[in-house]
């Protein structure tokens, strides 16, 4: 079985501007994040896979086919653009029913799917209201709903959290995570926000200035890099000494004692060290390394 999406030496030039420069990557089942700053070529890559653009050279394949040549290959594909794409005068249920039919579903099934999908994205109550009256968060959910209404195998989401406030962003990410894990729909999601990708993606592809700079499992970047922060009321220096006695590298960071790259068995040793040092433990918390830390350390 071919990968869902495959870029082979894919290039796209706009005049003298190079949006993508001979990139190679694959997207397989699960949630994949396409990460990069604005102008890195994320939207261009997505549009190439959708068949909205044609590559300058190389190929962008969708389940083994070229999307701009094969109309049928797009039947199980969903797309949520970054820009506005909803007609303001029409009610969401009517619009989704229509879009499901345009994807090939017969009218009766289209209506059922529209209602189901709107319930999944949490727009059950508002589905008969014109979309123009929706808030930004509701519009964003309606945009996601139209991408899911025909039950695609794969959806491409272009900056799905853009324009949302922190609360709305969390809700949207949770919805995307559920779509991927519970509904079993594979997702390629582009974002310029590290946090989005980190919290929900299985794999990431990092684009910068038209080139793939990193790719792989999110866990391979963030795994085994746990840092433990230990806060004690007093006897901090004694605690550090006790930890070093036990062969644990410990440093201080402000009021906290920091243990880098802690493994499971070290938790017991840390507990013993706290007892030995007679330190009054106030807080002990692990913190996984974020992607941001990794890229910052790579850059240094």
């Amino acid at each position: 079985m071919p990968p869902l999406l495959e870029a082979k030496e894919l290039s796209k030039h706009y005049g003298s501007t190079i949006a993508l420069d001979s990139v190679d990557f694959q997207v397989v089942e699960g949630i994949t994040g396409l990460l990069g700053p604005n102008g890195a070529g994320k939207s261009t890559a997505i549009k190439l896979f959708l068949g909205l653009l044609r590559p300058t050279s190389g190929s962008a394949e969708l389940m083994g086919q070229r999307p701009y040549e094969s109309v049928e290959s797009r039947a199980r594909l969903g797309y949520m653009p970054e820009h506005d794409c909803l007609p303001p005068a029409v009610a969401a249920s009517e619009f989704l029913t229509h879009m499901a039919q345009v994807s090939g579903l017969p009218p009766a099934q289209a209506r059922t799917r529209a209602a189901d999908t709107l319930r999944h994205v949490g727009l059950d109550e508002e589905r008969y209201r014109p979309i123009g009256e929706y808030s930004t968060g509701m519009k964003q959910r309606a945009k996601l709903a139209q991408a899911l209404v025909h039950d695609p195998v794969l959806v491409l989401l272009d900056e799905p959290t853009s324009g949302l406030d922190p609360g709305g962003r969390e809700e949207m990410l949770e919805l995307i995570r559920r779509t991927g894990s519970e509904f079993g729909i594979s997702i390629l999601l582009s974002s310029h926000l590290m946090g989005d990708v980190e919290s929900i993606c299985d794999r990431i592809i990092v684009l910068d200035a038209g080139l793939v700079t990193e790719q792989g499992e999110v866990s391979s970047f963030t795994g085994e890099t746990e840092t433990i922060y230990i806060d004690v009321d007093e006897r901090r220096d004694e605690l550090v000494a006790a930890l070093i006695d036990r062969g644990i590298e410990a440093t201080t960071d402000g009021f906290s004692v920091v243990v880098q790259k802690a493994s499971d068995e070290q938790y017991d040793l840390i507990r013993d060290a706290v007892v030995d040092a007679q330190a009054r433990l106030r807080r002990m918390a692990p913190r996984r390394h974020g992607l941001a830390d990794i890229f910052r350390s790579n850059a240094e």
Binding site: L50, G51, L52, V71, E72, R74, A75, L77, Y79, P81, H83, D84, C85, L86, P87, P88, M99, V102, S103, G104, Q146
Partner: peptide, 16 residues
């Protein structure tokens, strides 16, 4: 309106 509201980009990625 399809072009002004951006609906056209949803149509063109569907099987047509």
């Amino acid at each position: 309106p399809d072009r002004r509201d951006g609906v056209i980009s949803l149509y063109l990625v569907r099987p047509m």
